[in-house]
Design a protein around this nucleic acid. Sequence first.
DNA 1: CTAGGGTTAG
Length: 674
Amino acid sequence: MRKATLTRILSSSSYIIPGFVEIPFPPLNSHGGSLPFPLTASRTSSVFAHPLSRNVSTFLPPPEWIEPFIDISDLTIQNPRNLQSSPWIDRITNLLQDSPTMESDLSSFCHRFLIRLSPNFIAHVLGSTRLSKTTKVAFQFFRWAEKQKGYTHKLESYVFLIDLLSSSAQDSEVIRTLVAEIRDRGFVMTSSTSNSLIRSLGVMGMVEELLWVWRWMKENGIEPSLYTYNFLMDGLVNSMFVDSAEQVFEAMEAGKIQPDIVTYNILIKGYCKLGKTQKAMDRFREMESKHVHPDKITYLTLIQSFYSDGDFDACLGLYNEMEEKGVEIPSHAYSLVIGGLCRDGKVIEGYAVYESMGRRGCKANVAIYTALIDSFAKGGDVEEAMKLFEKMKDEGLEPDEVTFSVVVNGLCKAGKMEKAVECFKFCRENGVPINAVLYCSLINGLGKGGMVDEAERLFEEMEEKGCVRDSYCYNALIDAFAKAGRIDSALALFKRMEDEGCDQTVYTYTILIDGLFKKHKNEEALKFWEAMIDKGITPTPASFRALSMGLCLSGKVARACKILDDLAPMGILPDSAFEDMINVLCKAGRVKEACKLADGIIDRGREIPGRVRTVLINALRKAVSVIMHLDRKIISVIHDKSFWDVPIPSSTSWRRHVRVSSFIHLDTWLLSPP
DNA sequence: CTAGGGTTAG
C-alpha cells in the first residue's frame, strides 16, 4: 500500500513543481502534503515537527542527510533487507544538466527541501549509468557535493568519477588531482575500488598513479586477484611499458596466481605493439605447454600484427591453424587473410578462403569483395572480377568509391574503356563520391588508350568540381602526353604542377626522362635526372631503367655506366640496373656493347644472373657475325666455365642444362682460336 | 566485470 502511494507520488504532476528554481525561497505550504518526502514514518514526523518558515529558521533542524535507499523492511517481514530506491534520486538526477546554473539549482533545491545529499547518495548517483555521457556534469556535481556542510566524499565517489572521466578520455590532469586527493585522505582500500582504479588509470596510461594504487593495495593487505593483474598488465601495455608488463607476467608465473588466456593475450598484444611479432609468436608457442589455449583473440592479434608486417604467409598459417583447431574465426581475420593473399597476387588462394568463409556462414564485406575484385583484375581476369562485382551487389552490398575505383581501373587495364567510362558515369549519376583516385584511374586508362583529349578534359573537370589534384593525377596526364609524343604539353604540365604547389615525385621525373629520350632530347632528359637527384628524390629501378635505356640507345653506354657507378656507393642501385641495360642493348642488336657491359660487371666482381646470360646467348646466336668481331677478352669470358657453367632457366627455348660452352663449341670454327 | 580490430584503390 505504501509502495503504491510512492509510485503515485512519483508519477503525479503535482510532485514536479515547474520553475521551482526561480523561487528564491520555497514558500512551502504549511501542511506539507505535496512535499516529496521519503515515505518513512520517522522522516515524516521529523519534518512535520518543525515550522518551515524562514523567520523561524533558528528553530530549523539541520538539513537531513538523504540516503540513496530507503529501508522498507518493516513493511515486508519475509524479506528483512528490502531496499527501495529513494525518490530523491530522480529529482536530483533531473537537475544534473550541462547548464551554468546547475550548481545553484542544486543548492536552492536542497535548501528548499531542507536536505543534504549523503556521501552514499552522491556515490550512488555518480555510479549510475545516466551520467556516463556527461562527464563534465558529473565532475561539477562531485565538486558541488563537497561544499555541503559536514560532507566528505566516500572513496567510491572518487572511483566512480575517475571511471567516468577515464572512459571518456578526459584530461589526465583532473584524474591526477583526484588520485592525489584519495592519497591524502587515507582511505581504506577495497578489492573492487582498487580494481576499478587500476583499470581507469590503465586506460589513461597513468603509470605512476597505477603503481601507487598497486602499492597502496599491498599496504592495505589486499591481494591482487587475477583481474587486478590483468588490469595492471593492460594498463602497462597500453602505455607502452611492455617491459614492465613482462616483469609483472613473470612475477605472476613465480607466484600463486597463474597467467590465464587474458594475461597472455595482453602480453602478446604488447609485443605486437612494439613490432616484436616474433617474440609474440614465442609466447604464443609457449602457451600450450602451460595449458593455456590460444583463443580467437590470440590468433587475431597475431594475424593483425603479421598483416602489418606484410607477412601474409604467416597470416595464412595462423588462419589454417585456427581452422584445424576449430577456433572460432572472426570476420576480421578473414578480411586480413584474404586481403593479404590478394595483395600477394594469390587471388586463387584468396578466393578459396572467401569460399570457406561462406561455408561457415560468415558473410564477406565490401572490403573483402573489393580486394578480390582488384586482385582478379590485376591478375588479368577481368571476367571473374566483374562476376564478383555482380555477386556482391546481389548480396545486397553497396560498392563504395574504392570498389568502383578498382573496377574502373581493372576495366581500363583490360582495355575495356567503354565499360570503364560507363562505370564512371554511373558513379556520377548515383551519388558515389568521385575522388582523386577514381578520376586518376580513368585518366590513366584514357591516356594509355590513346584518348589523351578525353583524359585532359577529365583532368580539367576535377578543378571545376573542386576535387584536389594530387601528384598521381598530374602524373597520369603527364604520362598520357608523353606517351602520345606531346612532350611540350607534358613539360607545361610539369611546370603547372610546380606553380600549383603539387610536389613532383620520382614517377613524374621518370615519365619525363623517358619521354624526352624518346624525342631524342637527351641532354634535357639528363638535366631532369640531375634535377631529381638534386631535389633529394630517391631514384627507383624504373627511373634507372628510363635513364640507362635512354643513354644506351643514344650510344652513351659509358656515360650510363658512369652514372650507375656513381650511384652504387649510395646503396640504392638496384641489381637489375645493368641487367636492364644489357637487355635493352641486346634488343637493339648491340650485342658487342652488351658483352662489354657484361665484362665490366665481371670485372667488378659481380655475378651475371642466369636470365641475363640467356638474353646474351640468344642475342649472340642471332648475331654470329658479331661474335666474329669480338675481342679476345670477351671470348675468354665466354670460354670461362665459371661464368657460363650454370643451368639456364627453363623459360628459354633451351633445355635446362644446355651450356653455353657447347653452343660456343658449335661455332668455334667461326672464331679465331684463342 | 577483464582482452583483440578494421581491412579495399590510382
